[in-house]
């Protein structure tokens, strides 16, 4: 189910030359509440990027008049606007080139729209970004300022460590949050660190979510970390 955010409108620059795909993605982005400017060539993209301030750029790599990776630094032009590369190139070397080239995320087509929108939100919510006040995954809501989580209207009572874990899991919903990332999230809050403090925090969080009948489980991927799915499994 798509996530709805109505607090304010974000302007997105969408560079994609394939008309049917552009149309379909445009619809989905607009339904998700983004205000989207769409261009089909690198030249147009340079022109419009110079004029307006965008919160995010979604960039196709195979453009009729140039390569997206060459265009990327020109679109940034010194600003810190996040760029998501959306491309059919799926090889590891392509992905590395994209991320090394300064992309904030690299998404291979085809991509489900909820996933695309969630990843757009994720790059918009990088640390230091004031827009990241309210996180939402399915019925779960997390207020990052008030440090408070709720399921629908029901508040979920959580300790500091559990809140830290839940925040990270919601930020990377649909993807695995590595153990190291979660450890960083809880260990900055405490002086005393025990080896299985994270496991204990996850298991307390899991019990708390079950206590309020949360339909989203915390999935263990042993050897990697934990994951909060964006949707309940069919």
């Amino acid at each position: 189910m798509p996530i709805q955010r109505k607090d304010y409108v974000m302007r997105v620059l969408f560079v994609e030359d394939h008309p049917p795909l552009a149309g379909a993605v445009l619809d989905a982005l607009r339904r998700a509440g983004f205000s989207v400017d769409h261009v089909t060539t690198a030249a147009e993209a340079r022109e419009i990027a110079a004029m307006g301030a965008f919160a995010l750029v979604i960039l196709d790599l195979g453009l009729p008049d140039g390569d997206g990776l060459t265009l990327l630094p020109q679109l940034r032009n010194g600003s810190r606007v996040p760029v998501i590369v959306l491309t059919a190139r799926d090889q590891l070397s392509d992905r590395l080139a994209g991320l090394d080239g300064g992309a904030d995320d690299y998404i291979v087509k085809p991509v489900e729209m909820p996933e695309l929108i969630a990843r757009c939100r994720a790059v918009l919510r990088r640390p230091g970004d004031r827009s990241a006040m309210l996180l939402q995954v399915g019925p779960l809501t997390f207020d990052t300022v008030a440090r408070h989580a709720s399921l629908g209207d029901t508040p979920i009572p959580l300790g500091r460590r559990e809140l830290g874990v839940l925040e990270q899991l919601m930020r990377s919903a649909g993807r695995v949050a590595p153990r190291a990332v979660l450890e960083d999230a809880i260990y900055t809050l405490d002086d005393e660190v025990t080896p299985n403090a994270l496991d204990a925090a996850v298991s307390r969080l899991r019990r708390a979510l079950e206590g309020v009948d949360c339909p989203l489980p915390i999935v263990t991927v042993r050897g990697i970390g934990w994951m909060l799915p964006r949707e309940v499994a069919a």
Partner: peptide, 24 residues
């Protein structure tokens, strides 16, 4: 290979994106 990837993936990507506007 890159062109084939593009040619094959793009229509699938269109379908996936269009699917999003269908009612559940």
């Amino acid at each position: 290979a890159a062109e084939a990837a593009h040619a094959l993936r793009t229509p699938v990507a269109v379908l996936v994106a269009r699917l999003d506007s269908l009612p559940p």
